[in-house]
Amino acid sequence: MDALFKGEQAVLGAVLLDPAQLHTLSWLEPTDFYRPAHQALFAAMRTLSAQERPTRGADGSVPLSWVTDTVSEAGHRVRGLSASYAHTLIAACPRPQNAPVYGRMVLEGSIHRTVTEHAVRLEHIARTDAEQHQVDDVLHHADFLAGVLGDLASRWGIEPRLILPPTSRRIATPSAPQVGPEHTEDERFLLAVLIDQPAAMAEVYDWLRPGDFADAGHGQIYRCLGALHHRGEPIDEVTALWEIQRRGLLADGSLSREHVESLFGGPGAGSAEWLGDQVIRASVVRTAAAAATAIRALAESEAVAPGRLIGHALHAFGPLDDVRARWNKAVRPPQAPPPEADRAVQVTAALARSPTPAISRSTALPLPDTAAGLPTRRSRAAGHP
């Protein structure tokens, strides 16, 4: 027995029994219904209501024409509807006055389906573009999903805010795909450059993090190189190996000697900044795929209420926002402030474009004595989508 299917039938049956209930369901859309026949029937009801068809007889009863006209109008949108199914809907409604509650069930199912649909699309785009590191397309779909979450929050009647999922109720997510050696070549080349060129670490240290590496071992080696750079110590094969050993990465099996030796003595040629950009681009795409996978798992769980689903989904975008900000810092470095002479010219030009008209004393209105005690109006900042 499908509760959502029964809820959709109950909503439609309630409106067929009492057309006035349609006004209490103004927030419900035909697309919120899962089955095309139900979408067509609800759209037909709204069309007939907008045309002000008579829904009550002289004695206050609902005329039979309300049912037959609804089925006829819906038949223009979908095939196979009959008057017998309308009577099935009427029989499926326990109490017409509970129509808003039934409608809330329909909207809840629609929210879960909508989030699932967009999360699956984002996950597919991220995994498809993983080879080419197409960051812009992935981020566009991520922003679109965030906007959808904001719209759904408004429809559900809540503010879009981040909600941390409790650890006791974590949703199981599908395992991430294995990263092959062909996906980590840029990481190996980058580490070789950082070890061979002492000044190269300064090019990526501010925005590249160990978690951006697909290979966990590469991330550990980068963490060691970053520690040497942070302490102001020289970076070469000997100091890097010493830092790796003193952190116990070889003893606990986090790194193998073959893994480490493959990076030492290799071709340390290339641009650390360019290689680092390739690494963080791949990190953006992987993080977007992971966020989409987590959001899809949340949306597919019927135990998660819509408000929590939206809040948990927005929270799942947190890691993506972090790596996205660092990628923007890498590809769009801050510009140096203009010289003082150029700045003065810019200020003068700006003032010339927007002159302030002078106010004569004769036309100026006097300020009341109580003006200081009046409250000021504050603008409301728009929330995150």
Rank of each mutant, 00 (worst) to 15 (best):
R231T: 07
R223W: 10
P267H: 03
T184N: 13
G232N: 00
R209E: 09
F213W: 03
V279A: 02
S175H: 14
D186Q: 06
R247K: 05
L225V: 15
D277E: 12
P267K: 00
S262K: 03
E261D: 15
S262I: 03
A214Y: 13
W242C: 11
S256D: 09
R231E: 09
D186H: 03
L249R: 09
D186K: 07
E233P: 00
A176Y: 08
S271Q: 02
H183Y: 10
V260L: 06
S256W: 03
A202T: 12
L208I: 02
D212C: 04
E261Q: 06
S175R: 15
I235D: 00
Y205P: 11
F264P: 08
D252Y: 11
E237Q: 15
Q197H: 09
Y205E: 15
D252H: 13
A200R: 04
F189D: 07
G268L: 01
Q245H: 06
G270V: 02
W207C: 09
V179I: 07
H229A: 05
I195L: 09
H218Q: 06
L228V: 03
R247N: 04
P198Y: 12
I244M: 08
Q197V: 15
W242I: 11
L263P: 10
E261L: 11
L190T: 10
A251S: 10
P181A: 09
G253H: 13
A240D: 04
A240Y: 02
S271Y: 02
R223D: 09
G232H: 00
R247P: 15
